[in-house]
Design a binder for these strands. Structure first.
Lengths: 110, 110
DNA sequence: ATTGTCAATCGCAAATATACGATTAATATT
DNA sequence: AATATTAATCGTATATTTGCGATTGACAAT
């Protein structure tokens, strides 16, 4: 790979929306988010019981959601309590809303 | 990799939303979609002029958007005219709307 | 201090994604 | 028929993602 996304210079908005989308781009992570919302918060162990995946795999998905900013991990020894990051969740909601409503509603063909 | 997404058995809705999200999960593809909406439709060549990427790379991104069902390619020799697939775009809009509104509004902590 | 519990991280393997240049395929024009 | 134009596809290299088991780290409870 000779060219990188970094070198192209997309807008901040585009980068952030792509980051959120990518994080949402796996069924397991969608299920995790759904679970977080249903239970308000939950622990890794809860998810391990529900999903047919190894604990390490789930931990990795949680890490990606955390790095994308969609969830937070709050230490609650010996467990870690995960919650949706409301601020960024709202931001994601706003970005997707813009994507689907404002800029894309003026079709004239097809 | 011993376990595959296929084997787990997510709901159709979850799979489709993940597929759409994944397709949106790259800045270049977001720019392409933006361009498609601004111009109603456009050709690969238009995108090659705008993006600092090789023609083959852009063609590959178009292929992924097409496979995700977000765009259509209509032969218009010797060019191919790309347009947003409105039906699936509406579906994506609805799925994201559900994701952000219905199931995720009852937070009680954090 | 030792033990038990929970979750992150490491190390590895396999699959996918990203990017490019070169080639091929399709079709219009000459 | 020959040429030009446009975009897909092929082949390749590299990076990232996904998954697992094993280990480590953090902390509570004993």
């Amino acid at each position: 790979m000779r060219n990188t996304t970094q070198q192209i210079g997309f807008t901040e908005e585009t980068e952030v929306l792509a980051k959120f989308s990518k994080a949402l781009g796996h069924p397991t992570r969608l299920i995790i988010l759904k679970h977080l919302s249903n239970q308000s918060c939950c622990y890794t162990g809860d998810l391990v019981d529900v999903l047919p995946l190894a604990q390490s795999t789930i931990s990795q998905h949680l890490k990606e959601l955390k790095e994308a900013g969609l969830i937070d991990g709050e230490v609650n020894p010996p467990k870690i309590r995960y919650c949706i990051n409301q601020k960024n969740w709202e931001k994601a909601k706003a970005l997707f809303s813009t994507l689907f409503q404002e800029d894309f509603k003026n079709f004239s063909c097809c």
